[in-house]
């Protein structure tokens, strides 16, 4: 059966993934690379979150950095101002993000196409402005300092290596959870909404409720990423959660490839590494970054993952002829 072989392939993929995480975590000596990989992990979570919404359910969001920010500011405020343990702040911050997603999602997800894009954009901007202007709580434009490092009993996550494992552990768990949702009746219904919302409703899918659910799920994963980011760098500022950040998330999803968890990994890796490589261009950095975005979208609109696969298959076909 195809299903079984697909299952086996998935298992193998996850096993390899786990192996790569463990090996690179233990044997990588260079702390800079370790930290870079940790950032990739956080961005992978963001890309995964948005991919569930955009790639599977077909609902665009141009304001997703808001949930990332709610996770980061949530834990910052709770641990510093309210002296919460970070482990208590984590579920609290995620719950806040989910609640906000729920409330905002009800009116917003009625929109579609560009209008949905604009609704989410407006929401993201408002949250960003809130971070920037509510300075008594958030530290305002200059940022929030003094976020405590994570500790769990005797284990300190202050070291780069432990944090690396923490982040990638979260990535792995989120991957498996999302993969399971995708393979379930919920995932099928989401893809049905993507292919044809009216037809999905006509065969008995409660499209509105389902879109809302996946929006809330996506917000939760984004907030988790925000939490991990805040306790990694100890300092957050509104710029990290701006409109540009939302767009970067969308870009990760689209460049990596929609509707694929591995595409999220690829997109996040590329967009994290790209600025590192582009440092060499110094003041041409922005120009090159913009150019790459445009070129990929013009020539490989289905993302690098699928796009390169398509090219490979096409040349293969040509050669056999």
């Amino acid at each position: 059966m195809i299903i079984n072989s697909q299952n086996t392939r998935n298992r193998i993929a996850y096993a390899v993934f786990l192996l790569v995480i463990v090996v690179s975590g233990y044997f990588l000596e260079n702390l800079y690379y370790l930290q870079l990989l940790t950032f990739i992990g956080i961005n992978t979570l963001l890309a995964l979150a948005l991919n569930m919404l955009m790639g599977y359910a077909g609902q665009i969001s141009l304001g997703h950095a808001a949930f990332y920010g709610i996770g980061a500011y949530g834990t910052a405020i709770l641990t510093v101002h309210c002296h919460f343990s970070p482990w208590l702040a984590l579920p609290a911050a995620i719950a806040v993000a989910m609640a906000v997603a729920y409330i905002v999602g009800i009116p917003t997800l009625k929109l579609s196409g560009y209008y949905l894009g604009m609704g989410t954009l407006g929401f993201g901007m408002i949250i960003h402005i809130l971070f920037r202007e509510w300075s008594s709580i958030t530290g305002g434009a200059s940022g929030f300092i003094g976020i405590p490092p994570l500790e769990l009993g005797p284990v300190s996550f202050a070291s780069g290596r432990n944090y690396f494992f923490l982040v990638w552990g979260c990535v792995l768990i989120s991957f498996i959870a999302c993969q399971r949702i995708i393979d379930s009746r919920i995932g099928r219904a989401l893809r049905a909404i993507h292919d044809g919302e009216n037809a999905a409703a006509a065969v008995g899918v409660n499209t509105r409720a389902l879109k809302l659910q996946v929006f809330v799920l996506s917000a939760a994963i984004s907030a988790l990423a925000g939490f991990l980011y805040a306790h990694l760098v100890f300092f957050i500022s509104p710029g990290t959660f701006s409109f540009i950040a939302s767009i970067r998330m969308v870009t990760m999803v689209v460049i990596g490839g929609m509707a694929s968890v591995w595409g999220a990994l690829l997109g996040a890796s590329l967009l994290t590494l790209l600025p590192e490589w582009l440092h060499a261009f110094s003041e041409f950095e922005m120009v090159v970054y913009g150019l790459i975005l445009m070129l990929v979208m013009i020539f490989l609109p289905r993302g690098l993952f699928r796009g390169l696969l398509d090219i490979y298959e096409r040349t293969l076909k040509k050669n056999t002829h």
């Binding site: 959870a177 399971r180 379930s184 893809r191 049905a192 993507h194 292919d195 044809g196 009216n198 008995g204």
Partner: peptide
Amino acid sequence: ELFETMTVLENILVGHHAQTRSGMWGSMIR
């Protein structure tokens, strides 16, 4: 109006959606 990117079987399974009830949590935890 089929769900064109999905397989035949998956289309039928979406048709069966209303008769099943496992939710997001259930699917995650299996």
